[in-house]
Design a protein around this nucleic acid. Structure first.
Ligand SMILES: [Mn+2]
Ligand SMILES: [Mn+2]
Ligand SMILES: [Zn+2]
Ligand SMILES: [Zn+2]
Lengths: 129, 129
DNA sequence: TTCAAAATGATAATCATTATCATTATTGCG
DNA sequence: CGCAATAATGATAATGATTATCATTTTGAA
């Protein structure tokens, strides 16, 4: 059975305490700064375990995986390629259209990831001008 | 200026000759089997250069990047988590809804990637008997 | 309390991709 | 055509994220 350890609890608490999308290293550093140093390997394992248990969620970016709270409704992301800001959005119609397209092809969807890249509002302004 | 080399030409030809989504290693091996061995570093650089030139496109998967022909209309993907099959689909409505959602948030979209994971038709069957 | 199963942490190993750098090829020009 | 200068190649080292090892410690059921 899965054991509730202080390390896993610390990781989960840290993630649930904010709306950030954390990568393993940021989490390890932050935990360390909070007087709860946890081995980096344990952080990776803890994140995987917590995600498998449905307690946290993740998005797979080009170079690394980022984790966030799971107590929010499903949503997708827009990532600013200038400042790195990650914005969230939810669109029921897009979700249902995805499923219908899959169904047409006999594809059984178990998960999906939609990410838009571009410039966030702030970065769009400084842009031209 | 960008030079037209035999290596880049070979990479481009190989990609344009099929509908596959190649990773760098598969391409290097295939080129080698075809009597056109190319250093792996050159394959990586060639792929990046060809993509920057708009001659090929790519999708970023969890572990690696895969490249495909660019002479097809824009489309997104459905990936079978059992057999690895990559299917394509295009849906104008989903595309436009994405842009409208971004616009609402003042986000300027420069690119996006939508991937659905699940079971392809063939794998869905063997699934539950 | 007892102990087997599971988790941790330090560290080595993977794997895809990029960086180095000496050598070679391409291309505009005379 | 023949020549640099400029870019590309290729072998290989380096990176960076993530996983594998394995000895040691912790957890939780009985
Ligand atoms: Mn999110
Ligand atoms: Mn495709
Ligand atoms: Zn921004
Ligand atoms: Zn399949």
């Amino acid at each position: 059975m899965i054991k509730l350890t202080a390390q896993r609890q610390a990781i989960l608490d840290m993630i649930n305490a904010s709306d950030r999308h954390w990568d393993a290293d940021e989490l390890a550093r932050s935990l360390s700064d909070n007087g709860q140093p946890i081995g980096i390997a344990t952080v990776y394992r803890g994140l995987a375990t917590l995600e498998a248990a449905g307690l946290i969620e993740s998005i797979q970016l080009a170079d690394k995986k980022r984790y966030e709270r799971a107590d929010k409704a499903h949503h997708d992301h827009m990532i600013c390629t200038v400042c790195g800001d990650i914005e969230e959005f939810a669109h029921a119609k897009i979700e249902s259209l995805q499923l219908s397209v899959a169904a047409e092809k006999g594809f059984t969807v178990t998960g999906h990831q939609l990410v838009m890249f571009g410039l966030c509002e702030r970065c769009s302004q400084g842009e031209q001008k």
